[in-house]
Nucleic acid binder design. Structure first.
Lengths: 218, 218
DNA sequence: TAGATTGTTAATCGATTAACAATC
DNA sequence: TAGATTGTTAATCGATTAACAATC
């Protein structure tokens, strides 16, 4: 029922999980409706949490019958600022990009690669998954807002500066660096591989949980 | 001052960041002491949070003079269950492993690769960074507790089952899958690349924040 | 209508921040 | 001692869970 206040960060992360999940249900020609309980069970969270989360977006559930899949997917996408497919750029060596898209198929999640970029001269002319790898300098022309970054650690500061110059505000950072030089106003999500491995070392054997993350949420 | 209760998840994640950071300070031959304020500034958190976090581990700060770097590092490592270097295994194609260790040097974070494993027959005999890539079936012999997983999505369930059989309790999962078959009692941290990219799409241009999440914390 | 599930308010839980006495 | 910073208690903040009236 579209709460006026902005959803908190953990909620936004779950909303994007619902978006992925509902998108898959639609592709699978599943029943036309889902209940908060279904979502909750599949994603391992409480059903009250699902309803509370959905209260931030503009969708009407039907008491007794749940939510219409199509409406829910559209509304989630609208809230997340995704118009149809989410376009994003990726930066890294050609071999990193190839390895990455071997484990992550954007089309499976309703996403689309808007451009591939490398800062290595030897990657000039390379192609990954049928797409040309361009020099990083050209990223400004991509018109993209979100970027996945997996370059060598010593290049991170330069790449962030280049992304900032290209007016890219949002970056998902896979390369682990302790203290990157953070351009003003840029929103960077860090996947801290070493930190997460270390914190796993300490964890008592129990059920799952996420990143993100912090940010990550489960 | 070593609180008896177990530290909450967000705290554990920060403790592992302190461990990385203090480890780097030690390697840099920095001054022999740090104050909670220094840690807080460098990692972008409040200094009260740092002190509260450190109250869970067995270290004594000196009022007016902060913490001894060596003591702090040892105590953090002890709490996290890291004896010297943290050994971990990595699972993925040889090309994925090569790309990964090009952006992430474990030795820089006080970590050590205990073994590399692939489930692809064509990777037999391959080597990455001077280390042999072994068939996944041999992972039981590694004796390792923590594993980084970046295999193809269709292999995820099989690999998780193999890790479970090898008594590995903790996994950091890089491959995005909506609903992996989760072996009982296994602790899995998910880096959800598509979800994080989607939630970045919605984010208003502001300062940084983490993962993973969530789990990630900043 | 009866049954089921939503949307929302109130209660709980947990983590972060503030404040300050203890102390090196 | 005076100055600075720790360790801890209390206050705040925010998110999750529980409960239930509204409603399809």
């Amino acid at each position: 029922m579209s709460d006026t206040t902005r959803a908190p960060e953990p909620t936004v992360l779950r909303l994007s999980r619902y978006h992925c999940f509902v998108g898959e249900l639609l592709a699978d020609a599943a029943p036309a409706r889902v209940r908060s309980r279904d979502l909750a069970e599949q994603l391992g969270i409480a059903e009250e949490t699902v309803r509370r989360d959905l209260s931030y977006i503009d969708v009407e559930g039907r008491p007794g019958a749940g939510y219409d899949l199509g409406e829910l997917h559209d509304s989630l996408g609208r809230y997340l600022g995704i118009d149809g497919e989410l376009a994003f750029a990726a930066v890294g060596s050609a071999s990193m990009l190839a390895a990455l898209f071997a484990i992550f198929d954007p089309s499976h999640f309703g996403m689309r690669v808007a451009g591939l970029y490398s800062c290595l001269p030897e990657d000039a002319g390379a192609a990954v998954a049928g797409m040309a790898v361009r020099p990083l300098e050209e990223i400004g022309a991509s018109g993209v807002g979100v970027t996945l970054l997996a370059c060598a650690p010593e290049k991170v500061d330069d790449v962030l500066a280049a992304l900032d110059a290209a007016r890219i505000r949002s970056v998902l950072m896979l390369t682990p660096v302790l203290r990157p030089k953070h351009p003003e106003g840029m929103h960077v999500t860090y996947f801290r591989i070493p930190c997460s491995l270390k914190s796993l070392a300490s964890s008592t054997p129990q059920g799952s949980s996420c990143c993100a993350g912090g940010h990550c949420g489960d």
